[in-house]
Design a protein around this nucleic acid. Structure first.
Lengths: 333, 333
DNA sequence: CTGAAAGCGCTTACAG
DNA sequence: CTGAAAGCGCTTACAG
């Protein structure tokens, strides 16, 4: 393995000068610089990041703490973050917690010993309680918050879930739907439901309690079951809002099972915009969360904290957007 | 930040002795050991992994190079690997390549500079060509191979894709199906198709070329389109094998669209056993790849190479397993 | 079983 | 603009 010393020897200068060249310090005479650069190229030298990290206290690694990447949402967030962080020269150490606080703590302990520069964590509602722990660990961090309570005193980037519900319901309302059912991951998605109710209230529509169906499990299957129930009991429903896309996929299946054509007989709208939502037939109209903005903002805040040396607490709200596809249409009758 | 020195000072010994205690070298007198351990606890000392890495050449990090974790298969593999590696004390640095060789090369370059201990890469058919590059980089690596050509000279863990196709088709065959269609990601999944043909040949069944449909895109939508085509043109088909589960989901949708009940009118079998396959209604019968075994084996080989100091080239084949769910049934008249 | 010294490969003041 | 020295926090022979 070739080191600074080898390069210095070859170029006939000291390690210091080589270091100056590498770090682009404008104190090296042009011809010296060129000699050093030639030696670097000839030897194929690349700095040992470990040694540099030890010397400078900067490892150029950031830790990513996620509940699970088996959930496409987090997987995509990780990829977006990786791209953003890469541009800034950072590599990522990945830790998944499976929502287990004790596991999260252990992972953080290890990251601390590795002296990563900073941390981006997706709040699954557990880690948020550890803001104190995180703060006392001493390195900058940014929280990508889920729908659960927004922790204070931290730098947080989060989505406006109420607005998402609002947009989904507003869309159904504007298409003329009046008898609307909700298939939802409740009470977790309470805020989304409230947003929907707000949109409908503007047209003096209320969702009958009998039309609001909490799912047994938060999956496609759960959406299927809930939709089978509500659509069988209340066939007059013309629009269904699912509080997330996986449920919407289940609603689609229930509609097929019951012989109701989507969107001709039934409009279905979801929230999240997972990839699968655009893979079904018909493709699902949904409300997209700007994941890429979340990645970009989080990176921006973290890098700022890293460079300035101090963290700027506060909450940044990201606005969701309606994506109209094929599963919704104007009420005809 | 508390260091070895602080502990040594507090315990009234030298750094060497503290190091001996930490590394559990059985050369420390019991009461000295206890004194040191008390000091460690009181100070809350944990070794700086960066410094240790520089001194020993062991960072206890392994790099994971994956095409993308947006594909649930790789995401789950990463999680399984994380769990296995964690048990051995390793953290993971994640790199996604998006199947771009040039990107992969850049990522490897950075990992090299970080002096990770070893590498596990999922072969997306690109990285396999870089066995030479990898070998010359000098650290141990294990390849989790995809269906494409198996690189030689490396330590490889892979699935028997032919066997997967065999099991899927054998299942349909044993249920009495004779007119079988294939919806496939071809030619990529050629080996799976050949396995299927082998199983059917045992019962003197051949798949008519008109029944083999390559998908336009390798997604649920692609499966839908291909199935619509083949089922419309050949309504006498009673069983469909999809070369992977995402396609099978599309086949299910096509069946619904065409008013054919699954499994009463049509049996559908997939391959992969992605989570979604067990979320649909009906749940998809499929052939599962033992991802966890892949993670365990890969970790085992890597750790062995790390400890023994040399890599043992060779290919390990992992056998898939049939998982019977609701989308297949015996052919009735 | 314990102590003093050198080294891992960098960077960073500090003289010249 | 360049050189000699100390230091980041560990580990590892090597004496005692």
């Amino acid at each position: 393995m070739v080191t600074l010393k080898d390069v210095a020897l070859r170029a006939g200068v000291t390690k210091q000068t080589v270091s100056n060249v590498i770090n682009k310090r404008p104190v090296v005479k042009p011809d010296t610089r060129e000699r050093v650069e030639r030696a670097i190229a000839e030897l194929g030298y690349t700095p040992n990041l470990l040694a540099r990290g030890l010397a400078t206290g900067q490892t150029m690694m950031v830790g990513l703490v996620m509940p699970t990447i088996a959930n496409p949402f987090y997987a995509e967030l990780v990829e977006d973050l990786e791209r953003c962080l890469e541009e800034e020269g950072y590599s990522i150490a990945l830790c998944t917690t499976y929502g287990q606080p004790e596991r999260a703590r252990r992972q953080l302990e290890i990251l601390k010993r590795r002296y990563i520069d900073g941390l981006i964590l997706a709040d699954d509602g557990n880690v948020g309680h550890d803001v104190d722990l995180l703060t006392e660990m001493g390195f900058p961090f940014v929280l990508c918050a889920s729908e659960t309570e927004i922790p204070s005193g931290a730098t947080v980037v989060t989505f406006d879930h109420g607005q998402a519900g609002y947009l989904a319901a507003q869309h159904l309302r504007d298409l003329g739907h009046r008898d609307i059912a909700v298939v939802g991951d409740l009470p977790a998605h309470r805020v989304r439901l409230e947003g929907a109710q707000r949109a409908l209230a503007e047209a003096s529509i209320t969702i009958a309690p009998s039309r609001i169906r909490a799912t047994r499990v938060s999956s496609q299957l759960g959406g299927f079951e809930a939709a089978m129930g509500v659509l069988t009991e209340h066939p007059e429903v013309t629009g269904v809002m699912a509080t997330h896309d996986l449920l919407a996929l289940g609603v689609l299946q229930a509609a097929a099972e019951l012989g109701r054509r989507v969107p001709e007989d039934l409009s279905v709208v979801g929230i999240d915009d997972i990839a699968a939502a655009n893979q079904t037939h018909p493709a699902v109209t949904t409300v997209a969360f700007p994941k890429q903005s979340m990645a970009r903002k989080s990176t921006e805040f973290l890098v700022h904290a890293l460079k300035s040396g101090r963290q700027r607490p506060g909450v940044t709200w990201l606005r969701p957007e309606l994506v109209v596809r094929e599963s919704t249409s104007r009420l005809t009758a």
